[in-house]
Simulated assay, not measured.
Amino acid sequence: MNRRSSWLHAAAGRRITQKLSWGGRVTVASRGVVGFDAAALRTLRTAAGISQHKLADRVRLHGAQVAGPHICLYECGKRTPQLRTLTALASALEVPPSALLEDDSSFRLCRLRLRMGIRRRFIW
């Protein structure tokens, strides 16, 4: 499957699982990487002691087109980064890309919760 056809499948709402050079697997949908952990991004950024705009500057050095407001949207969970942006975020924070992904058990729990119609506000 070439790059264009993989984009078309993702745009059609299909999910594509790709094996990555760092040894992990990631599922990419039309709206970004499935299983992105917004809380992990905020935790890693604050632990590094950098602002959202400074992180955006570092991410741009790694080849992704990101502005400061994008980082805020990623951290709030309102937007999901594409695969290229995810790897650039990990490089900018000097962590493996898997550090920005939810582990399988929490992702499965989230899917189960959504299928059952249980909203997060009812759990907390």
Rank of each mutant, 00 (worst) to 15 (best):
M116K: 14
R120S: 10
L93A: 03
A38M: 05
S6T: 11
V26F: 13
T17L: 11
R115V: 03
V28M: 01
V28H: 06
I50Q: 03
C110Y: 11
R42W: 02
A67C: 04
E102P: 02
D104A: 09
M1R: 15
W22G: 05
E75T: 02
T80H: 13
K54A: 15
L44A: 02
D37Y: 13
V34S: 13
L100Y: 04
G68W: 00
A47M: 12
P96S: 00
C110G: 03
S98R: 14
A38V: 07
I123T: 09
L20Y: 15
T43C: 11
G13Q: 10
V28K: 08
S106W: 14
R115S: 13
A67N: 06
G23T: 05
T17N: 03
K54W: 15
V26I: 12
L109P: 01
R15N: 07
E75D: 00
Q82P: 01
D37E: 14
R42A: 09
V59G: 03
H62Q: 07
S6Q: 08
A64Y: 12
M1K: 14
G13F: 14
L44W: 15
F107R: 11
C72F: 05
V33Q: 12
C110D: 13
E94V: 14
W7Y: 03
V33H: 03
R121C: 04
R60D: 01
C72Q: 05
G35Y: 14
I118S: 10
D104H: 06
S51F: 10
N2T: 11
V26E: 09
G24S: 11
C110E: 08
G23Q: 04
V26M: 10
S6N: 06
S105L: 10
R111F: 09
G68D: 00
L83M: 09
R84V: 03
M116R: 15
F122T: 10
H62G: 01
G13P: 09
Q18D: 13
Q65S: 11
K54P: 12
A39D: 14
L112I: 10
G32R: 07
R4C: 02
D104F: 03
I123A: 07
G32P: 13
A29E: 13
K54D: 15
T27P: 02
R84G: 01
